[in-house]
Amino acid sequence: MPAGQQPILELQGITKSFGGVEALRGVDFALYPGEIHGLVGENGAGKSTLMKIIAGVHTEFSGRFLIDGRETHFRSARDAHAAGIAMVHQELSVAPDLTVAENVFLGNQPTNALGLVQWRRMAREAGEQLARFGI
């Protein structure tokens, strides 16, 4: 923990069950500005469940979720995205028939005033994002 800094994201005592199966029990986690964390563990350890809570996919859990010291409870992944949190899901076959640009902007395609997807803009911006990563 960096001295004098407040976590930008903090989980306290996070517990999540699916039916009678407890996927997470009392998880504590703090993320400070400038930190990068890797989450590792065996299959069934709760890695994806924890990430889905942070990303607003799983909304029912117990414990405290804080962003910049303020308790937060996302109602959806859209709420998390609005707070600057997004997740790249590990399921590789979710959208196999989409283009790279469509996958990059999945659920967040640029649209015009009529709500129509701006295909050229999406392709251009996807290319720019990929270029930043050397892809």
Rank of each mutant, 00 (worst) to 15 (best):
D68S: 15
L116G: 04
P110M: 13
P2T: 00
R64V: 14
Q90Y: 05
E128N: 03
E91C: 03
N43Q: 12
E128Q: 13
N43E: 07
N108S: 14
A55N: 07
L116C: 00
A95E: 06
E35H: 06
G13W: 05
E71R: 12
G4C: 01
A113T: 07
G69I: 12
T49M: 07
M122W: 07
R25H: 05
Q118P: 06
E60C: 03
G84E: 11
R75L: 04
F29H: 06
Q12P: 00
A82Q: 15
A123F: 05
A80H: 05
R78T: 02
A131P: 06
A123Y: 02
A55Y: 06
G20N: 12
G127P: 02
E35Q: 08
G127E: 08
Q12C: 05
V40S: 05
G134Y: 15
G41M: 02
I135C: 08
R70D: 10
E10V: 11
V94K: 11
T99W: 14
G84F: 15
V27P: 07
I53G: 00
M122T: 13
V100N: 01
G127T: 06
P96W: 00
G13Y: 01
T72S: 13
G107Q: 10
G46H: 11
G41L: 02
R64A: 13
G20S: 12
N103S: 01
A101V: 12
M87R: 00
Q6Y: 03
R25D: 05
V40A: 10
V117A: 12
P110Y: 13
G107V: 12
F18P: 03
A101I: 13
A95R: 02
E125I: 14
G26D: 04
E10F: 05
A113C: 07
M1F: 02
V57E: 08
A86I: 05
R121H: 14
F65P: 08
H89F: 09
T59Q: 14
P2Q: 11
L98N: 04
A55D: 04
R120G: 14
N103A: 02
R124P: 02
A95I: 09
V104C: 01
D68Q: 15
F133R: 12
I135G: 10
A113H: 13
Q6D: 11
Q5R: 08
V88P: 00
V100Y: 06
T72Y: 08
G34A: 04
Y32V: 02
E10Q: 15
L116P: 02
G34K: 06
E125A: 14
K47Q: 04
I135D: 07
G134C: 12
E10W: 01
H37M: 05
Q12E: 04
L116F: 09
S48P: 01
L92V: 02
S48A: 02
R121V: 13
G44V: 07
Q90R: 02
R75P: 01
N103D: 04
P110K: 15
V94D: 01
H81W: 11
H37F: 10
R75G: 12
A131I: 10
Q12F: 09
N108G: 06
E60R: 13
G134F: 11
P96D: 03
I67G: 13
R25K: 12
L92G: 03
L130R: 10
Q118E: 14
A82E: 14
K16W: 03
L50D: 01
